[in-house]
Amino acid sequence: MSNSNPVTPILQLKDVKIAYGGIQAVKGIDLELYRGELVCLIGANGAGKTTTLNALAGTLGLAGGELIYDGEAISTMPAHKRLRRGIALVPEGRGIFTRLTVEENLRMGAYIRNDSAAIEEDLEKVYTMLPRVKERLQQVAGTLSGGEQQMVAIGRALLSRPRLLLLDEPSMGLAPLVVEKIFEVVQTVKDEGVTILLVEQNANLALEFAQRGYVMDSGKISITGSGEELLANPAVRAAYLGEAA
């Protein structure tokens, strides 16, 4: 294990700028994540949240600034190598391989691993966590409902045994009951010690679960604080929690 000092962040964003199709979507943000934390990133549509997560996972390059993960600069590391370091992203829209079966999707999550016995164990763990997935293993994943696909996407990410899990809008378009189930899973994962960065439109829900939160606005971080602080912050309540100021 590398640096396990609790005061050193597992992930650090230093003045990160990201340009996307000619426009600067993220205009210099600083953000820190500490080991074992669940931190959420909230903000309006187009604030740059998804862009930030994609840059963390390595599918988008930086236009400036630096990413430090576990004491190492990873700004130019390609996505497939970042996964090997333990950074997994559950992308916006789930990114299920619709033509592969559910089981094949899950096994793709373990692509970087060669410890087949442990992979089978982890698969079983995912099945117990997500029993509805287990009933559909041989089904082509494109036939699953949105909620089931989201569960497969999360299960798949877990099979890489991530140390840092990036979740992009896991509640998007899902019924409240399903969302509840998904957040139960997120909580379980957090309890196992995985650091989580959660992007959510549903700010209320996210802040309830998160220890800390960052509010993003037009490519910048406007407010930061603990989950409770942000929930109590009148500006946040007005802008993101649907309350009149």
Partner: peptide, 24 residues
């Protein structure tokens, strides 16, 4: 095979395949 699975996954979505650790 695992390799074949990675080929099919890449055929479907390069970006997500790279998120699975596949060197596209």
């Amino acid at each position: 095979t695992k390799l074949g699975r990675a080929m099919r996954a890449t055929a479907e979505n390069h970006r997500v395949a790279s998120l699975m650790g596949v060197d596209v």
